[in-house]
């Protein structure tokens, strides 16, 4: 049953959280995790599996497939048990009343490639909220994350993720 009764309102307090960065969280890129992601997308390119092959191509190790930006360090009680992402202290508190959740899209900007062995520090902030009330109410939440390679200090990826709550 579509939930047409529940309402949501974007407040100034929520808008005040736009751009406020969370504390960093560690993401790890390992040979095993790169291979598993590559299997998940159905790739058989040895650049994602074979360390010697990747090194012969000039990479540090096997290369993370596009879209794989490491696995967040999982600590029971501190990460979401379904999605795995860290639940940050002091992060946006939106108290979203809708039960439905869909992935609304991903935009990823790369500044460098990512290889197994990389450790990334990710900070995230709320970037945008949109609420549509025509028909079934829908709330679009956009978060922006910046991933920095801990060893080099360089930003390697910026990503915008939009989730749809309805």
């Amino acid at each position: 049953m579509p939930d047409t009764e529940t309402k949501f309102e974007i407040t100034d307090e929520m808008r005040a959280q736009y751009g406020v960065d969370s504390a960093p969280w560690t993401y790890e890129v390992t040979t095993t995790s790169v291979r598993m992601y590559a299997r998940g997308i159905g790739s058989d390119d040895p650049i994602h599996y074979d360390v010697e092959f990747a090194k012969a191509q000039g990479f540090r190790s096997i290369v993370a497939p596009l879209g794989y930006i490491g696995t967040p360090v999982y600590l029971p009680g501190k990460n979401d048990p379904t999605f795995g992402f860290p639940r940050r202290e002091g992060g946006p508190r939106l108290n979203i009343p809708f039960r439905g959740l869909l992935d609304g899209g991903t935009e990823t900007e790369y500044f460098d490639y990512i290889c197994a062995g990389d450790v990334l520090a990710e900070t995230s902030h709320l970037a945008d909220l949109k609420y549509r009330e025509t028909g079934r109410p829908m709330l679009f939440v956009t978060n922006e994350s910046v991933y920095t390679n801990v060893a080099t200090g360089k930003v390697v990826v910026k990503q915008r993720l939009t989730s749809i709550h309805m």
């Binding site: 790890e28 040979t31 095993t32 995790s33 696995t71 360090v73 600590l75």
Partner: peptide, 24 residues
């Protein structure tokens, strides 16, 4: 077989272990 922090955590998480030596 490769033993890494990430896959130890994933295994521990999938069993439901609560001891921090498997995560932290």
């Amino acid at each position: 077989l490769e033993v890494e922090k990430t896959n130890c955590r994933m295994f521990a998480r999938s069993v439901g272990h609560t001891d921090a030596i498997y995560y932290d």
